[in-house]
Design a protein around this nucleic acid. Sequence first.
DNA 1: ACCTTCGCGCAACATGGTTGCTTGTGCAAG
DNA 2: CTTGCACAAGCAACCATGTTGCGCGAAGGT
Lengths: 160, 160
Amino acid sequence: MSPSASKPSPLLAAALARLSDAGQRRTGPRCAILKIITAEHGPFGVDELHRRLHGEMDLVTVYRCLAALEQLDMVRRCDFGDGIARYEYVVPGHHHHHVICRLCRRVETLDVCVAERLERAAASMGYAEITHSMEVFGICANCQKRRQKGRGMERHPPPL
Amino acid sequence: MSPSASKPSPLLAAALARLSDAGQRRTGPRCAILKIITAEHGPFGVDELHRRLHGEMDLVTVYRCLAALEQLDMVRRCDFGDGIARYEYVVPGHHHHHVICRLCRRVETLDVCVAERLERAAASMGYAEITHSMEVFGICANCQKRRQKGRGMERHPPPL
DNA sequence: ACCTTCGCGCAACATGGTTGCTTGTGCAAG
DNA sequence: CTTGCACAAGCAACCATGTTGCGCGAAGGT
């Protein structure tokens, strides 16, 4: 197959370039993972990624690839407080937060970020290398409707 | 012993009252846990609490007590992204966030909260019952100094 | 085409937390 | 004070998520 088979998205191409530039090998699993996470935005659980690759690679490999990508700042770990690691592709320079539906776990992006004040407060307390994590939780419009009608939820994981 | 043996702190007394008011039993383990978490502020890991009670009770009991207290909103779970559940006593009406040192895990309180805008944004997207979690991470002044001198850290858990 | 090295697969392990079931205890009624 | 009952504690087995060690295979440079 020619390298341009089924038009590699520009985001994916950039990702692969970032990989090579960092002196990292462009292996099958890494490409497959990058293809998924550059195509859709929502953070992906490790297990979810693994399932989406329907056994093409070992679960351990998914963990290790993501760890490697995180090291290169190509991927960011999101923590929704349920003990599951989720990852999303990092578009350099973009910063955002998430709203997560406590019932169906739908994730949407909030482009506002309001943490500067808190970071400044921490800096004035003597802290350095400051970062922050923030998540907003709620019940999405769909789940509210569904709940009113007394119908079941789409998914029933333990609520967040 | 008289009920006022070694002056129960007002916070502890209030906590016990909250327990009874909710129709919950005032058992040994629950009292012991409440005594600790009302005396000091910092969020406590489950294991930390268990150790501080040097085996007075089963670890499972600590989990279950905290789960019960969380249900009653007497205790809040804090998530620092390392997969360890930490809990702090909830003083009704108080809302705050934390700055956590990535190296020694020292925790300090930030009384500012800046999430209103984000919560409003989420509300305008149709979400209900909105809550948020936010943590600020950094390297505390002590650890910066210690690191400069090339000395070891006080504690060496995997950095956050 | 070869060689080195990095990364994958597999299996075993570690950690943090949960569940099921039995025993014991808080607490209130008698 | 005694009794009874429901709820909570204890114990053990289990589960899920993530990690480590190691040999083999393939990526990519020469």
